[in-house]
Computed example of a mutant assay.
Amino acid sequence: MKLVSYKLKQKPSTLRVGFVMDDKIIDVQEAFLQLPGHSTEMEYMLPSEPNAFYKIGIPAIEKAKKAYTYVMENQVEEISFHRDEVYVATPIPEPSKIICVGKNYAEHAAEMKSEVPDYPVLFAKFANALVGPEDQIVKNSKTNKLDYEVELTVIIGKEASNVTQEDALNYVAGYTIGNDGSARDLQKRTPQWLQGKSLDNSTPVGPWIVTADEVGDPSNLDIHSRVNGELRQSSNTSKLIFDIPYLISFISSLMTLKPGDMILTGTPDGVGFALNPPQFLKGGDKVQLEIEKIGRMENEVIEGEFHY
């Protein structure tokens, strides 16, 4: 099941959670209310607002799956919208944590002139950096070296503290695509990377969240990026130095992960910084990211300091 955050284009509306069915978006809460014998009591309802939905985590997704199955089997049309009628946003606009992993492919570590790390290299992003699959990446005037990084992104589905690697995937709600927008000049001017990693409107995440059951094993997914149609990154998640179960176990030993938290798991080689000569993003560029079993996302770059 593919879950999106959407709102209608033609009339004022707030973001709601929907699922994708062919060329339609179906409202998850409205679909849930179609179930025979449903109760309108609040404890049995699904919230429609994305942040609230994902804070419930896996129980909300299980209810959404029941609604999805019912709507598919009964062809309920009145709660659906054609894809052209809606704007699709980043799936979780305000996660409590956005945790990123650096140097998690050996080839990328090598191209960045770095040693393979003994432990996962962790840093944070914040919600101000997030944009969606239909938004533009803003190249802030403070940077001349904005780079792209395609990354498999994990969405946590239930509270995780000190989980084992063997049990770690049971804490995953789903997966999506992240573009870890990186201002290399800002990133590298101090030992800490944060200032180069959290510029406003620099990190697309989307186009949807694919539930964990549909993705299955995340350790063998092809992963690619293209800029203006030119292939830049091409790898497979089997090449991760620290795989998804290890990362969840490691991070949850340091901090409690909450439902809706995101983990951007690292990028393969082929980033613009490491090309000869380096090729950084500029206004008008189109960055396309693709991960097997998840889908494709494309964003245009604009110059400026635009805030949504």
Rank of each mutant, 00 (worst) to 15 (best):
N162C: 14
V163T: 11
T164Q: 13
Q165I: 13
D167N: 15
D167L: 13
A168Q: 00
L169Q: 04
Y171L: 02
V172M: 11
G174C: 09
Y175H: 03
T176H: 08
G178Y: 09
N179E: 08
N179Q: 13
G181C: 04
S182H: 06
S182L: 02
R184K: 14
T190V: 06
T190S: 13
T190L: 10
W193Q: 09
S202G: 12
S202V: 02
S202W: 05
T203D: 07
T203K: 07
T203S: 15
P204S: 08
V210T: 15
T211Q: 07
E214V: 01
V215R: 00
D217V: 05
P218A: 04
L221K: 00
D222K: 13
D222Q: 12
H224F: 11
S225L: 10
V227C: 12
N228S: 05
E230Q: 12
Q233D: 12
Q233T: 10
N236E: 02
T237E: 06
I241P: 03
F242K: 04
D243G: 04
P245D: 13
Y246K: 12
L247F: 07
L247T: 14
S249C: 12
S249F: 01
F250E: 11
F250V: 08
S253N: 15
L254M: 12
L254V: 00
T256W: 04
P259E: 05
G260I: 03
M262H: 15
